[in-house]
Each structure stands twice: as structure tokens, then as C-alpha cells.
Design a protein around this nucleic acid. Structure first.
Length: 423
RNA sequence: AGAGAGUUGGGUGAGUGGCUGAAACCAACAGUUUGCUAAACUGUCGUACGGGUUAAACUGUACCGGGGGUUCGAAUCCCCCACUCUCUGCCA
């Protein structure tokens, strides 16, 4: 969440940023934050004064008891009753103000970076670059949901039988392609200096709040109610929360982790025309990269993460483009996001396969993820993450773009992982 | 899942109602000494939110797993929860 002090000190920037997200009453929201924080401070000052008085009386009583002056002790003891009442009242008020402030802050998204374009929807995203050749396919090209049937590599009906819609079963070469991609992505990340982690894929409520899925996206996560645990929608949640309530040394930055996990999304209400086949699933596999950086380095890091992801797409021989998301399309917690989309040549659509974001201090503030520098001061680090990559749409694009009448050619870079070179 | 024992600052670990934000030791940091290293000695050595200051100094409050209660006063007593360890059971 946003820092109140940042709102105070950079009021104009915060206001302009939230307006870029098309929040109409941004000014009144920010004013409310400041007013609540003022009230919080004054309440605390009062409460602390009373508490200090109560503490001092208690000490006196202790001293008198020790000296055997029981009568004097019980005399001043009577005075504490009213003080206690006032403390209680102020304490309750403080708790309420603090909760109100927090609740309000939870509803405010991150302030977009200056370079974020204005806009209302995905239409307004800025195309930063486009690379790779869009293949021209033969006339009887098939979309991937036909190809997977033709070659019997992914079975949606079986998934429906054992679980439900959106839970495909990968079979034979389909399953091996999944495994090859995961290994390829992990090996690439390792070579780029990331440390591999295997986190839990169920997380508790605190973790959900830490990275911002809660309370914003409560309905999008599967919830195991018997144990009060959420199935992760992305490895970002457990991996970033590894550093919740942690103060790291400045030298340990940047922290770079990569992890493969299945991801679970309820996608409530988002099923429509363009979600056939692998385009949108309830369960899918993803390799995620996460970095914790010094605040001065985070935008440099964002660019390097973007280049890294583009490198993967190039190695997979997929045509792609990079979008800088506009204020209206950006995620709640992000300050700047690049989306990478690959062209899926039979659907003739661009499919989002990665989203690389800098959250600045929005997550680390909730996480209390700080570092201590040479000046001994602790300050919030910046957090970033990106998909590298999400599998299903990569699979869709590979299948569609490389189809021939005689089979589907696999990208060269995967051959040694696959053990075959075509399907 | 049942029974028992625990959870204290970066670590080990004292502390059963007031003088304890917390002994001691270790680690870490700064300095002194030393030709260098080591050793020794001295000092510093938690976090958050307030007040205060140009900034400091200084100062208030809270925090001994989390939440609640008893009390003038709680790390210390009581209740609930989480987690850890041991034994039993079950199990990939």
C-alpha cells in the first residue's frame, strides 16, 4: 500500500498518478488519508500522555509499597481509575482510526510511474516494440484446440471428468512439452543468476495481503476453508513473501529468485469469446522471476527483466511484442508494467504470456521488507516480478505457429529437453 | 489425531508480579593498543509509532509467538489460538 508520508510529500504526483488510473475522486481520497493520519497522530499523542501518567503512578505505588506505606499507596491508587478509563477510550479510538486508515489505504492502488501512458483499457496500451516474423501458414491451418485433438496431446474432456472445465490433462508429447518448457525456463534463469526456489503452493492470509492479492482479489483465489489457506494464483505470492518481515543487508541486494509452480485462478466472471483452449485456464504452470532491489536500481532492473523475458521468446522463435500498460489496464499493485504478447498464428491473436512489473514500495510496505545500508538506516526495498514464462499460451503459439501438414515442428532450443523434434 | 514440554533481542540463554526494553555470553560495528594479523581493552549494539529539531541531541508510548483477561502495575498469573520439539498413532 501507499506510504502516507509519500502522499504528504508528493501530493501532486500521487494525485496525478491516481487520476491516470481514472480514479475520479482521487483528491478527496488522498485528503481523507491525510486527515485520518492527522487524527491518528493526535490521538496517539493524547493516549501516550495518559499512559505515561499511569505508568508513573504505578511506579510510585510500587515504591510506596516497598517502603511499607500501604495507606499512601492505596490513596493514589484511586486516582488511576479515571485515567484508565480515558486511556481505554483513547485506545479504542486509536485502534479504530488506524483500522479505518488501513482499510482506506488498501483500496488505493499504486501510483503509476511517470512513463505510464494515460488510457482506459487495453486498447490504450503503448506498443513499445514488435519482433520476430509472423509465420504465413497454409490454408487449412488449425487453432491449437484442434491441433491438440489431432495429435492427442492435451485432453480437456478428461480434465472435465476428473475436475472441471479449465483443468486440462496433458498427455504423451503434450506432457513432455510442458516438462521441457519448465526445465528450459528454470535453466535459463539459473544461467542469468537467479536462485531457484520451490515454495508451497498454498499460502496463508498474511501472505495474500503481503503481495496485494488480498483484499483486492479475494474472489479470484481458490480457498481451502478447512485450513484457511489460499491456492496461489502465481508464484509471486509465496516467493515474495519469503522476505516478509525481513531486514536484509544492502550488500545482499539484488535478491533474485526463480520458481516454478502451478497457478490457480478462479477467473470468476471472465469467461467469454476468446478463452477457448489454452487461452484461459483455472490451473496452469508458470515459471516466475522475482527480484528485491535497492530503490535506486529498480527501474534498471525492470528493463533487464524485460530483456530477459524477450530473450526467452526469441529463443523459442516466437513473434512477440512488448506493451507498456496504460493507467487503466495496469495491475492494482504495479507502478509500471510491461506485458509480453506472442502472436498465435492460427487464432491470429496476440496472447499475453508475461507481465513484468515494478511495484516500488507498494508491496514491500505491506511486507515490511527492508534493507539496512551503510548509514544504518532501514528503508523499504523495491520488489519486482515477471512471468518467465507462463506455459499454456506459449504452448498454444508453438503449436499453431509451427504446424505443417506433416506435424508440428518444435523450437530447436527445446530439442534436448524434449527428446524429440516434432509432434 | 492423542499425551506431554516449549516459544524471550542477530545467536545461545537468564528472568514467576514493580528497581526488566529485558542479565550474561557469543556474533556484529566503532575506537584504543600492536610493525601487520591475532589477542586484549573501551564503547555502540532491536523495531514501530508519536513529540521535538533545519538535521541531530533529547523525549513519550508500545512490543519477550499472536489475541484477550486479571491487577494500581504482567516477559512473569489466567483463557483462546498458532507454531516448534518429544512419545504414541497414521502415512507419501
Amino acid at each position: 500500500m501507499l506510504l502516507v508520508n509519500q502522499i504528504r510529500e508528493n501530493y501532486a504526483v500521487s494525485l496525478a498518478g491516481l487520476q491516470k488510473r481514472n480514479i475520479a475522486n482521487a483528491a478527496s481520497i488522498l485528503d481523507q488519508v491525510i486527515a485520518l493520519d492527522d487524527l491518528r497522530k493526535s490521538t496517539q499523542t493524547q493516549r501516550d500522555q495518559f499512559q505515561a501518567e499511569a505508568n508513573s503512578i504505578s511506579k510510585q505505588i510500587g515504591q510506596l509499597m516497598k517502603e511499607g506505606k500501604a495507606a499512601e499507596a492505596s490513596a493514589i491508587r484511586e486516582r488511576t481509575a479515571q485515567i484508565k478509563e480515558q486511556i481505554k477510550e483513547l485506545e479504542d479510538q486509536y485502534t479504530k482510526v488506524e483500522e479505518d486508515l488501513k482499510a482506506l489505504l488498501y483500496t488505493i492502488p499504486n501510483v503509476p510511474h511517470a512513463s505510464v501512458p494515460t488510457g482506459k483499457s487495453a486498447e490504450d496500451n503503448e506498443i513499445v516494440l514488435q519482433q520476430g516474423e509472423i509465420p504465413s501458414l497454409h490454408a487449412d491451418k488449425l487453432p491449437h484446440w484442434e491441433l491438440i485433438k489431432k495429435y492427442d496431446i492435451i485432453d480437456f474432456d478428461l480434465g472435465v471428468k476428473i475436475t472441471g472445465a479449465g483443468f486440462p490433462v496433458y498427455k504423451g508429447k503434450g506432457a513432455r512439452l510442458q516438462r521441457a518448457l519448465i526445465n528450459f525456463f528454470l535453466d535459463e534463469a539459473l544461467a542469468a543468476g537467479y536462485t531457484e526456489v520451490q515454495p508451497p503452493i498454498l499460502v496463508n492470509e498474511d501472505s495474500g495481503y503481503g503481495t496485494g492479492q488480498l483484499p483486492d482479489k479475494e474472489g479470484q483465489m481458490y480457498f481451502a476453508s478447512a485450513d484457511q489457506l489460499y491456492l496461489i494464483p502465481t508464484a509471486e505470492v509465496p516467493i515474495t513473501n519469503l522476505y516478509r518481515d525481513v531486514i536484509v543487508t544492502e550488500e545482499s541486494l539484488p535478491i533474485r529468485n526463480v520458481g516454478y509452480t502451478p497457478c490457480f485462478r478462479r477467473e470468476a466472471g471472465s469467461w467469454g469469446a476468446h478463452v477457448r483452449g489454452l487461452n484461459r485456464l483455472h490451473q496452469f504452470d508458470k515459471v516466475e522471476i522475482v527480484q528485491i532491489t535497492h530503490p535506486d536500481k529498480s527501474y534498471e532492473t525492470l528493463e533487464s527483466m524485460s530483456s530477459y523475458v524477450q530473450g526467452l521468446l526469441q529463443k523459442l522463435e516466437l513473434p512477440y511484442r512488448v506493451l507498456r500498460l496504460c493507467g487503466g489496464d495496469m495491475g492494482f499493485t504495479s507502478a509500471l508494467t510491461y506485458d509480453m504478447e506472442v502472436f498465435s498464428a492460427a487464432q491470429e491473436r496476440w496472447l499475453e504470456v508475461s507481465s513484468v512489473s515494478n511495484f516500488e514500495t507498494y508491496q514491500t510496505n505491506r511486507l515490511k521488507l527492508r534493507f539496512k545500508g551503510d548509514d544504518k538506516k532501514t528503508q523499504l526495498a523495491h520488489s519486482l516480478n515477471g512471468s518467465a514464462l507462463a506455459l499454456p499460451r506459449i504452448v498454444a503459439a508453438i503449436l499453431e505457429n509451427n504446424q505443417t501438414p506433416d506435424g508440428i515442428r518444435m523450437p530447436k532450443v527445446l530439442h534436448r529437453y524434449l527428446g524429440f523434434d516434432s509432434i
